[in-house]
Simulated assay, not measured.
Amino acid sequence: MSGLLPVEEAQARLLALRAPLLPEKISFSECVGRYTSDDILALRDQPAAALSAMDGYAIRFEDLPGPWTITGESAAGAAPDRMVGAGEAMRIFTGAILPDGADAIVVQEDVADDGAMLTLTGEGPGARGRHIRARADDFAEGECLLPAGTRLTPGAIAAAAMSGAGQLAVGRRPRVAILTTGDELVPAGRALAPGQIPDSNSPMLAAMLAGEPAIVSLPHHVRDDRAILAKLLKELARRHDAIVTVGGASVGDHDHVRGALQDAGGQIDFWKIAMRPGKPLMAGTIGDAVLLGLPGNPSSAFVTATLFLLPLVRHLAGARDPLPTVHRAPLEIALDGGDGRRDYLRARLKNGRLTPLIGQDSGRTMPLAAANALLIRDIGAPPCDAGATADYIVIA
């Protein structure tokens, strides 16, 4: 279908419209979900010395099977005050520094201790180095622990804190305005006049962005009025890094986003994508803000937000890999061939197999409620039998 932009090209052009935001330094308590702006390098070895991994006794492996003279103890948080010599054992606790001379730990369940002498009663450590955490076993000073652009999970924050850092440089949170258009839309829960429908897109998009490092501004709603829309776009562009319009991006008499963007002094970069649902997607700039125009049907808005809005937010926040990950799984049922647009079918992944849901019309919301994957049927793809593998994207 001529004139339609491939999805990958559109994604690349969207992300090229603006560079990631400048970084800021914040405490660990604020870091979860943010993206590192620099490589996180270890400032220390972890552990900084060989440690015991068990409660027991530090011994020389060559002295097995004992007995040993007990010469003291090593507890976590302090260095042992002497070394372990021939025929000696030192009481040691999990996390304590291994004393010089020792090269194995015999666990306390394998010995008898009369206060002065230690006798082996079990199998013993079995090998030199058993139950010992070697110095720098986790990481060594200077090692890159987290490359720039890494999303900070609780586990990644633990590693960064253990590295010796006191705070982290992360990408700033983009300010995102959600703007719906259309005379027919009414805030959810309000009484409806004939021809009106509840606005499902605002709460849906806000929910999609809830797990992202973004500051979301909503609700903003404009009736089908080009002049008012242009004025609001100007105002929002002064206070936001991205503006997401929903609806009004097609070619109908009441679709005013393209015209309003131009009236407001903005520039359109691309319009219309070779995908279904979501063909009328539009992107451009107004001032320093990126404008992303999503279609108004709920499934179209959801699919295009998954492929474009979430990557844009992650890119602005400093993500190294902002695009969704594509997986593969076998089909539960046969799938028809593709045509001139790439399809993103709402699907269910269950027991490792994909099933496209009934009712792929872009105006339906129930397939969205049941879906946990977008099944990808590429342009011109041949029909597939059940059991053939297909690409998909995980969705919440």
Rank of each mutant, 00 (worst) to 15 (best):
A347P: 09
L375A: 10
G56T: 10
Q46R: 10
A19H: 07
K25Y: 02
V257R: 11
G247D: 06
G248E: 14
D137Y: 03
W271L: 00
D38C: 02
L291A: 03
S299Y: 13
S202V: 15
S200N: 13
A381S: 15
L17M: 14
F139K: 01
V257D: 10
I379F: 02
H327V: 00
S74K: 05
H327L: 13
A116K: 15
S299Q: 15
R13F: 02
D55G: 02
K272I: 00
E30W: 01
G211T: 12
I59N: 12
H256I: 05
R18D: 03
Q167D: 12
T180F: 04
P65F: 07
V257C: 10
D114S: 06
G296A: 06
L233N: 05
S202W: 13
R342M: 15
A317I: 04
R133W: 11
A134M: 13
A188W: 14
A227C: 00
R328C: 01
A329N: 07
L261E: 09
A305S: 15
Q167E: 14
G129M: 07
D321I: 00
A169Q: 13
G380L: 04
G259N: 09
G387K: 06
L22I: 00
V251M: 12
K231M: 07
K25G: 09
P322N: 11
A148F: 02
Q196I: 09
R172I: 00
G87Q: 01
R314F: 06
V176T: 12
A86E: 13
F61Q: 04
V106I: 15
F302M: 09
E109D: 15
A19R: 14
I286M: 05
V176P: 08
V84K: 09
R175D: 14
W68I: 12
E235Q: 14
E73C: 11
L281C: 08
F28V: 04
P99I: 00
L233R: 02
E9D: 14
G189N: 06
G122M: 08
I157V: 15
D100V: 04
T389L: 08
G278I: 07
